[in-house]
């Protein structure tokens, strides 16, 4: 429960840390599109190079990045196995009942797992290098046009900010409640599905009670800080596009072009080199 790396800022002064939050948000969306565009292994390698480059530039320790992968390891294994077993490939190596392990299946599941890993790495890079306040301010700024259709953009941003702030607090609280219930003899990891689900109830109820109490106090604290005092709220955090953002955008654009080019075999240009040709096929 302590390992909630998602949404945990890693302080630093790197190139990426200094980029504008809005630029990073847009680039992450571009990155996600890029991951879904990638078709063959060469384009996946290009996306990987993009991620590696981004990690190096942001100076986030590799161990920190790996931790975010560790958090989804079960999902990765599950996805990998399911795709491996159920893919209807032609070159079947092994078959039992409904399960077929085929060459195409292996390739497909490796790609799926790779895709998930790349997605998680790219997006956690955003949360590692951008403060939650930065992310919410950036989103608010990007959503500004929605104000004209009466979307309460600022309120949404404050809600997100508070949610991010309270995730670690509530997860710590879950730990405490679990410990207290264990001390009373509760057990959370034995018995069937139903009894395990039932065992969660003594955690959820105190958690909800405490969350509502917190919400009550928080609402008062917001009022005490004059929340909604004026529609002409000012901003402490200045956001400014700079050369870093331009460079980041150009870099990302270059990789998107590269991925598309690799997907399309450089429009036949590489056909000349027969020995690498097969790479484009997988």
């Amino acid at each position: 429960m302590k390992d909630v790396t998602l949404g945990q800022y890693y302080p630093g002064e790197s190139f990426t840390h200094k980029m504008d939050a809005r630029a990073k948000l847009v680039l992450v969306i571009a990155f996600i599109v890029m991951v879904f565009l990638a078709k063959n292994f060469l384009s996946y390698i290009a996306v990987m190079l993009c991620v590696i480059g981004a990690v190096l530039v942001s100076r986030i320790p590799v161990s920190k990045m790996l931790k975010s992968i560790k958090a989804i390891i079960m999902i990765l294994i599950f996805t990998g196995l399911l795709n491996l077993m159920f893919y209807n490939g032609e070159t079947v190596y092994w078959s039992w009942w409904r399960f077929n392990v085929s060459l195409e299946g292996i390739i497909f599941s490796v790609k799926m797992v790779l895709r998930l890993v790349l997605l998680v790495m790219g997006t956690t890079l955003l949360t590692f290098t951008t403060t939650p306040t930065g992310i919410t301010d950036g989103m608010e700024s990007l959503m500004t046009p929605l104000k004209y259709i009466k979307v309460p953009v600022h309120d949404i941003a404050v809600i997100m900010s508070i949610a991010l702030r309270f995730i670690p607090i509530l997860s710590e609280e879950v730990d405490k409640i679990m410990m207290a219930q264990k001390a009373r003899g509760a057990s959370f990891d034995t018995g069937g599905l139903v009894s395990r689900a039932k065992a969660l109830l003594p955690i959820l109820i105190p958690l909800f009670v405490s969350a509502f109490r917190r919400a009550d106090e928080l609402a008062m604290a917001l009022d005490a800080r004059c929340y909604n005092a004026t529609p002409n709220r000012t901003r402490y955090q200045v956001m400014k596009f700079g050369w870093r953002d331009l460079l980041g955008a150009l870099g990302t654009a270059a990789f998107v072009v590269l991925v598309v080019a690799l997907n399309n075999n450089f429009w036949g240009a590489y056909r000349a080199v027969e020995s690498v040709w097969w790479l484009f096929a997988v």
Partner: peptide, 14 residues
């Protein structure tokens, strides 16, 4: 006004 529980008075993560 400053309240009792310090955790419940903070809105930002920085």
């Amino acid at each position: 006004m400053v309240f009792q529980n310090p955790d419940n008075q903070m809105v930002a993560s920085v």
